[in-house]
Design a protein around this nucleic acid. Structure first.
Length: 1038
RNA sequence: GCUCAAGUGGCGGAAUUGGUAGACGCGCCGGAUUCAAAAUCCGGUUCUUCGGAGUGCGGGUUCGAUUCCCGCCUUGAGUACCA
């Protein structure tokens, strides 16, 4: 027994060591953070994961390892560190799995969390698990619901520039109506006096208040995804299709809960200046908020009078409101353009133009959003026949309809200044509309002058001779005098849709009385998710919660009851205080918008966190997560934090002082090319041959890609066939004939001789399962292909010239569907968590995207073994009390300096190489001194905590290494007595020369010139100049 | 199109107050050990016509440029008729 134990101690048995210390940390609660401490606080946060069924791959822990190193480093530096972890556990995949299998999402989520926890634990993170949160836990979402109620009970007072309780607004309405209220609210608000207000019935009052609330119910145009059966937020749509699953998305009018984030647009923008986030991230938030400063201008529509070429009567009822960023160019307006969807289009179009305009509007409506986006070059439009009056010149201006104007932005109408805007310019050129030049000395014969720089306004009455800034100011002044315009700031940021037609999300604490939403009293929260039989929409198209038999609110007894009573009581004409509950659930970002505050006091049942805890921890000092959340989570959470701050519920209005985006770790996937038959028929439907696909060699696919046009012509133009064949070389002809043969076979099998549109055949890459590849040879195992991919023609595969069949490799995002994920579990078994941690850091800079290659891990693993050997030899511990050598002290102190600098700069990759250098040097020095080797372990412990703990305890320490003070750097050990000078000739280093450190420039020059190598380089020439930088370099110019 | 990153050996990457380009590791080559293999250890590894050349390309500033300036090219990310 003793012998075995001794042997075990002698070798680096990482599996045993890591299990031992992970158990130790858990048992001793080593990383539990206290809410009161004499130490300064430091809050290190990771973006919490969604626990997917696939478990962790090696890309997930990257950010966690970095934050863990930082957290551990801060503990060594004497801070009280809060480093929590939890789960963003509501979400679509669990629900879709539930739809397929009938398993309750709560069950699969719990299972997934178990897997995640096991995987996280085996990597040795210093999380304080006593503070774990789960967004799907009722004790957590109780407070998500509570915050929702606070938002409902608030409005945004622009004068105070903050959110206030809705009761203050009601008071104003009662005493003076809404004319003096400066609020962020719906656009179509009616104006009313105090008398009006007091005369309104209760429902009317509620409707009006709803238009002011920070979360409100409104019929809005939403992104509806039919395949997912739910609405999606703008940031959940990528390239016109859903982020999850890639399904098409259409615009649809629906009544939905929205969040009035637009109220915070300016503060969200300003707040960016006081937080230390990366520039690129701030930039994307700025773009998303999309602030533009300019003016709102009103153009009166002139009355239709077919008999007069210049209409003179102003029809007061129609006004075209526009927003412009260039009020200085207002005299350059030569036409106006309305979006085809603009409500005035049908009202102002003259009878003569009616047919043309209607046809145009219909044609644009037919085009999908994607078509319109893809085709921005074709200029289309129609003249309405109507004219508007220029507010300053009073001249009539033709009003056009054009689809380059978007209904969804600004007012859906623009004043067109062709000389100053390229789109207006192109439109004017296309329809022969005059292009008046309003810029001094600028040639606009070829293109518009869109710049704001070096502008001198001309042909513009009182604006002549002014620059952009002056003219803008003057123009706005004049418009304000006329009451036809004012300075205005526009934001692109839209209010966020907050309803989802899903099961697995937070239920709203909302029930409906006479169709008006009522909040459940906060003391009755949480409203728990009801049980449902199936997780799909109901037969009548209601969201999944409509399937629940118990889903109504008993407002007398304050509890959720069976919804039979609603129907029953409705029939009897008496509600008995029982009302239907909201059927939508909250979106994924609800729970993640405030979780960082919950970690401060996760078990509180009286508040989402206590005042004491919030005041102690305040904000996150370091937040690490992916950049994909730039315009979603990171914007919404800042919005909620600002709201909570306004309500005095949190002490700071920006919750994350510093934020770092870790780069993605990419996987390598394998592809083969296949020939595929596909076409689009007259109806626009898409067909693909699929199982007629044939595996094809690189040679053929290269040929195809090069000659794509020719092949297309061959199929589309009968007359060219012969000429095309003739133009090919013999080798090309062989490839070509093979391709044609394949295509023809497909066409025959598919029964499709003449596809109606586009290129009927294409080469497309197909992802390969790793099991289909002979990794060593990078070849396909052909025998497995046929059954796996359903190909019909594997036996006909054309091989490469050397008789093999190579696969193509592509580095891309790790994903189960691409068969390129690498699981950390096996790596921990084979090399240990410390090796994994070091290797992930060693791969490259934290923020960079980088490919994963498991083979490289042997480097850091070898380093750990070498390190172990420095401490433990075959006969036991090697460390003793001998005096350290000068060299060893130098090695230690330069390592302290570098590692400390690296951690503070988040340059973790370079510390790993610094450790390697240190161990290589100390091994060469045969260092055994405790004075060196003890502090070295402390330096290493944030990176490789298990081996550090183990060796630390073997050195005789009883307590964990985790709170030992970080070694202090002593410059004296780095002082050198001589310098190995690089000697350059014309800037090129030719040799080096060892000289005493205290030599002055003259002494250095003498020594260098006296050296025979210098004379050899000069070959008798006299140098023109000798540059000496003592302590750095010598450069001889000659 | 616009905005932001980034381009350095076979690969991941080092070097930013301008001062020895390629640290550290992988891979590869050679050697030691071994019956053999693995593991381990030692040496080599930017290219080269051995003069030199060389950090995406072309200029510039400088005694000296991966680093600073001007003009391009490429890749990645975000965003897009945003008025």
């Amino acid at each position: 027994m003793t012998l075995i134990f001794t042997i075990k101690r002698m070798t680096y048995n990482f599996n045993e060591i890591e299990a031992k210390w992970q158990k130790y940390w858990a048992k001793n609660q080593t990383f539990k953070a206290e809410n009161n401490s004499v130490k300064p606080k430091f809050y290190v946060l990771d973006m919490f994961p969604y626990p997917s069924g696939a478990g962790l791959h090696v890309g997930h822990p990257l950010g966690y390892i970095a934050s863990d190193i930082y957290a551990r480093y801060k503990r060594h530096k004497g801070f009280n560190v809060l480093h929590p972890q939890g789960y963003d556990s509501f979400g679509l995949p669990a629900e879709q799995y539930a739809i397929q299998t009938g398993q309750h999402p709560a069950i699969t989520t719990a299972e997934n969390i178990k897997t995640y926890r096991r995987q996280l634990d085996q990597i040795g993170f210093s999380f304080d698990w006593s503070r774990e949160v789960r967004t799907s836990d009722p004790s957590y979402y109780k407070w998500t619901q509570w915050i929702f109620i606070q938002l409902f009970n608030s409005w945004y007072n622009k004068d105070a520039d903050k959110a206030e309780d809705i009761s203050t607004l009601e008071k104003i309405f009662i005493s003076e109506g809404n004319s003096n209220v400066n609020a962020v609210c719906d656009a179509d608000i009616i104006s009313f006096s105090a008398e009006d207000w007091n005369a309104f019935d209760s429902k009317k009052k509620q409707q009006i208040l709803l238009q002011y609330r920070l979360t409100y119910l409104a019929e809005t145009e939403v992104n509806w995804c039919p395949a997912l059966g739910t609405v999606l937020a703008n940031d959940e749509i990528v390239n016109g299709v859903s982020e999850r699953g890639g399904h098409p998305v259409i615009r649809k009018k629906m009544t939905q809960w929205s969040m009035r984030i637009s109220a915070y647009a300016e503060r969200l923008l300003q707040g960016l200046d006081k937080i230390d986030w990366t520039d690129s991230l701030k930039e994307s938030q700025r773009n998303w908020i999309g602030k533009s400063v300019g003016a709102a201008v009103s153009f009166k529509v002139l009355a239709n009078n077919e008999n007069e070429s210049h209409a003179e009567h102003v029809e007061a009822s129609h006004v075209i409101d526009v927003f412009t960023t260039r009020p200085d160019t207002i005299f350059g307006v030569s036409f106006m353009t309305l979006a085809p969807e603009h409500e005035l289009v049908s009202k102002i179009t003259t009878p003569a133009q009616k047919a043309e305009v209607e046809a145009y509007v219909l044609a644009t409506a037919k085009r999908s959003e994607r078509d319109r986006m893809a085709d921005v070059k074709t200029i289309t439009g129609a003249f309405t026949g109507a004219y508007a009056e220029h507010p300053l010149t009073k001249q009539p201006i033709p009003v056009w309809v054009g689809d380059y104007v978007l209904a969804g932005y600004g007012t859906g109408a623009v004043m067109s200044v062709p000389s100053g805007d390229q789109r207006d310019y192109d439109f004017a050129k296309h329809f022969n509309i005059p292009i008046p030049n309003i810029f001094e000395g600028v040639d606009i014969s070829k293109e518009a002058y869109a710049s704001k720089d070096n502008v001198v306004i001309a042909n513009s009455d009182f604006l002549n001779g002014l620059n952009y800034k002056e003219a803008t100011k003057k123009a706005i002044q004049e418009l304000e005098k006329l009451g036809q315009g004012e300075g205005k700031t526009n934001y692109r940021l839209r209010d966020a849709v907050f309803s989802r037609q899903r099961y697995w999300g937070e239920p709203f604490p909302v029930y409906y009385v006479n169709g008006m939403p009522q909040m459940v009293d906060a003391k009755h929260l949480p409203i728990r998710l009801p049980e449902v039989e199936k997780y799909l929409p109901t037969e009548t198209g209601e969201p999944p919660l409509g399937n629940a038999t118990v889903w109504a609110w008993d407002s007398v007894n304050n509890k959720v009851v069976s919804n039979e009573f609603v129907t029953l009581s409705a029939v009897e004409g008496s509600h008995n205080g029982i009302y239907p509950l909201e059927l939508n659930t909250m979106p994924g970002w609800a729970g993640s918008s405030w979780y960082f505050n919950r970690y401060m006091d996760p078990d509180n049942t009286e508040a989402f966190a206590s005042k004491e805890a919030l005041n102690y921890w305040k904000d996150v000092d370091l937040y690490i997560g992916g950049s994909e959340h730039a315009t979603g989570h990171l914007l919404y959470s800042r919005f909620w934090q600002k709201f909570l701050f306004d309500k005095g519920l949190v002490p700071v209005d920006e919750y994350a002082k510093k934020l770092i985006n870790q780069g993605m770790i990419l996987g390598t996937s394998a592809y083969v090319d296949v020939i595929s038959l596909e076409f689009i028929d007259n109806e626009g439907a898409y067909f693909s041959s699929n199982k007629f696909d044939t595996l094809i060699s690189k040679r053929i696919s290269d040929f195809y890609n090069k000659n794509c046009k020719k092949i297309q012509n061959y199929f589309n133009d009968e007359s060219k066939k012969e000429a095309i064949i003739k133009s090919l070389t013999d080798e090309e002809k062989e490839n070509f004939t093979y391709l044609i043969k394949c295509f023809d076979e497909f066409a025959e099998k598919f029964g499709c001789k003449e596809p109606s549109y586009g290129l009927p055949y294409r080469i497309r890459p197909v992802l390969l399962d790793i099991s289909l590849i002979d990794e060593a040879k990078n070849e396909i195992r052909l025998e497995k292909m046929e059954s796996a991919l359903n190909f019909t023609k594997v036996d006909n595969v054309i091989k490469e010239s050397d008789g093999t069949f190579k696969v193509k490799r592509e580095v891309e995002k790790m994903s189960k569907s691409k068969y390129n994920v690498v699981n950390p579990d096996q790596i921990c078994v084979d090399y240990g968590a410390d090796s994994l941690r070091l290797y992930e850091m060693f791969l490259g800079p934290l923020e960079q995207y980088k490919p994963w290659n498991t083979a490289g891990i042997t480097g850091v693993h070898g380093f750990l073994k070498k390190l172990w050997k420095l401490y433990v030899g075959e006969n036991g511990l090697l460390v003793n009390d001998t005096e350290p050598s000068k060299d060893s002290l130098k090695t230690l102190h330069k390592t302290i300096k570098k590692v400390q600098e690296d951690i503070e700069n988040f340059s973790f990759n370079t510390s790993v190489s610094t450790f390697m250098i240190a161990v290589n040097e100390l091994t060469a020095q045969k260092c055994t001194s405790k004075e060196i080797l003890e502090p070295l372990l402390v330096l290493l412990s944030p990176y490789a905590p298990h081996i550090a703990e183990e060796l630390w305890s073997q050195l005789g320490h009883k307590a964990s290494i985790s709170t030992v003070p970080f070694p202090t750097f002593d410059e004296r050990h780095l002082v050198e007595s001589s310098k190995n000078y690089p000697i350059s000739f014309n800037g090129k280093m030719r040799f080096t020369l060892e000289l005493p450190m205290d030599f002055n420039a003259q002494q250095i020059e003498e020594a260098v010139m006296a050296n025979e190598k210098t004379q050899e380089q000069l070959q008798g020439r006299t140098p023109k100049k000798v540059i000496i930088v003592p302590g750095k370099i010598v450069n001889i110019v000659g």
